[in-house]
């Protein structure tokens, strides 16, 4: 809490405005859009894991659930506003129920990981097995392994024919990420956020203080799922198709790697980790010499060994030591004099 809130907001706005202007000059907006979306997904896990101590192996479940909710309701309604809202609400409610079961059941971290992982697998298996015509919600056939194509993509609210796509869609996604980032900032500065960090540090103590730990963890878990759901809906709009692969184990594992590499316990870290690694994967996908999962694994190992706190905290420490070094410069001089005197 060293910086003031207004200062924090100003820095966020200036940095993001610069990035939104600068990055499209280097990378195509089509690619950037998905990087922004992954950034939001990374932030969703970074929030609950880095600030709430909830290690969820199934963040992809909420991402996929958001995407499927959007696709199914968009086909049935033919307009994108309500589906976008539902894509946030459905994963949040699902996470609240799942979270209540886990946190009120006082499950330990290991079981939490197992359960979230299994839930993701169940959704993956289930969605894969819905190929038949009997699996339909309203007009939307779930489509099994092939997923759901051809749904109404994002439009200007109230006007289904005014599609938001291309460069404009990138700006919408980037703006959404900035808004989510600011909301997360506000949340972490609020009492709720500070209490969440307290729970991350010592659940027993927070219980002894009189805080209902289970209720608060459930709420934070649902908030994380809501953000992941929003990212999922934006992803569905970007890809114009949703497939069961959204729920895959690889996707879940990748989100965790983003957070570790970017830096846990920071707001910016998981976004940087997500966008950076996703871009690297994209670049590596353009060559066929080395398998890119091999490189991903290598990066994770190197980070765990040499930068266990992640990229953003490491850079912060470096900057602080440079600034601190300048301030401390007169010190040797004084010490020498003291020795002579």
């Amino acid at each position: 809490m060293s910086r003031r809130a207004s200062q924090d907001v100003t820095i966020t706005l200036v940095v993001s405005a610069f990035l939104i202007w600068f990055l499209p000059l280097m990378i195509s907006t089509y690619t950037l859009t998905v990087l922004v979306i992954y950034g939001m997904l990374g932030l969703s896990l970074g929030l609950i894991w880095g600030f709430g101590g909830i290690l969820c192996f199934g963040q992809a479940a909420f991402f996929g659930l958001g995407a499927y909710t959007y696709a199914i309701t968009a086909i049935n309604i033919g307009e994108s506003t309500l589906p976008m809202i539902l894509a946030v609400l459905v994963p949040a409610v699902f996470a609240a129920l799942l979270g209540a079961m886990m946190f009120y059941g006082r499950l330990t971290d290991v079981y939490l990981g197992v359960i979230t992982l299994v839930v993701t697998l169940i959704l993956f298996k289930f969605m894969n097995s819905t190929a038949g015509p009997q699996y339909a919600i309203g007009n939307a056939r779930l489509g099994g392994f092939n997923g759901i194509p051809g749904f109404q993509t994002l439009n200007v609210p109230g006007d289904p024919s005014a599609y938001i796509w291309g460069d404009t869609y990138f700006y919408v996604c980037a703006l959404a990420l900035v808004i989510v980032f600011l909301l997360v900032t506000w949340l972490l500065r609020s009492s709720f956020g500070r209490i969440a960090v307290g729970i991350r540090e010592n659940e027993v103590r927070m219980g002894l203080m009189g805080y209902n730990v289970a209720a608060r963890k459930t709420m934070l878990f649902a908030i994380g799922a809501a953000i992941a759901g929003l990212a999922g809906a934006l992803f569905a709009n970007w890809g114009e198709i949703v497939t069961p692969n959204l729920f895959s184990l690889g996707q879940s594992a990748e989100i965790i790697i983003w957070c570790i590499v970017g830096g846990l316990g920071t707001r910016f870290g998981p976004i940087v980790g997500a966008a950076g690694l996703a871009y690297l994967k994209f670049m590596l996908g353009q060559q066929s010499m080395i398998d890119n999962t091999l490189i991903m694994g290598l990066i994770l190992v190197l980070f765990v060994l040499f930068l266990p706190r992640g990229l953003v905290p490491a850079i912060e420490t470096l900057l602080n030591s440079i600034i601190g070094h300048k301030k401390r410069k007169p010190k040797p001089h004084r010490m020498r004099r003291a020795r002579h005197g």
Binding site: S191, G198, L208, M209
Partner: peptide, 25 residues
């Protein structure tokens, strides 16, 4: 309540630890 082993939030400041306890009420 104070338990046998010190139960505190190690990564937080002394002030934040005490503030969290006060904030409950």
């Amino acid at each position: 309540i104070k338990t046998q082993t010190p139960n505190v939030m190690d990564a937080l400041s002394v002030h934040e630890n005490i503030w969290l306890a006060a904030r409950r009420f």
